[in-house]
């Protein structure tokens, strides 16, 4: 429009936030923190029927340094919590966390001495997903919601502590 017509062909004007947010949200690499039953549904999400590649988020990286979003899939015990936190700390910023399933979100059905009652006790979580385990479609929903959140967050302060998204 106004400015672009003055600059000539080949230029667009936009906010840096919008551009970087767009780039970030379309190149999310998940780190599959597969712990228990949800990990099987996470694998199902990558199978030929559900095909996670449709959303541009299929590049599962088991190395935390190459990934952007950690999908905590399964029950986190107190013994495992230290490992999960260590892996999270190794991820490069900006980084996001999806709590997949009831166990990761709240301890779920495991109200016992060894299960952490929700990973938000030691990790900042961006999306909580319901289900025990969530169907692959539900995981995709979480990823899409996360994409929306990533696309609209500020570059300098990407973690401006918006309220986490709770999917039911």
């Amino acid at each position: 429009m106004g400015l672009e017509s003055a600059l000539g062909e080949g230029y667009i004007t936009t906010k840096l936030d919008a551009l970087i947010g767009w780039a970030r949200k379309n190149s999310l690499w998940p780190m599959p923190m597969g712990l228990s039953c949800c990990a099987i549904e996470l694998m199902s999400a990558g199978d030929p029927r559900h095909d996670i590649s449709r959303y541009g988020m299929e590049v599962m990286r088991f190395s935390p340094r190459q990934s952007d979003v950690m999908i905590v899939a399964g029950t986190v015990t107190y013994k495992m919590a230290h490992v999960v936190r260590k892996i999270y700390d190794q991820m490069a910023e900006p980084r996001w966390v999806i709590a997949m399933g009831a166990c990761a979100s709240s301890g779920g059905m495991f109200r016992s001495y060894s299960v952490v009652q929700g990973i938000d006790q030691f990790l900042p979580v961006d999306v909580f997903t319901a289900g025990c385990p969530p169907r692959p479609e539900n995981l995709f929903n979480a990823l899409i919601e996360l994409q929306k959140k990533v696309g609209t967050s500020s570059v300098l302060d990407y973690r401006d502590r918006k309220e986490p998204i709770i999917l039911s």
Partner: peptide, 8 residues
């Protein structure tokens, strides 16, 4: 407190 958690 019997089992420690990492700090958030």
């Amino acid at each position: 407190g019997a089992l420690p958690l990492p700090k958030r």
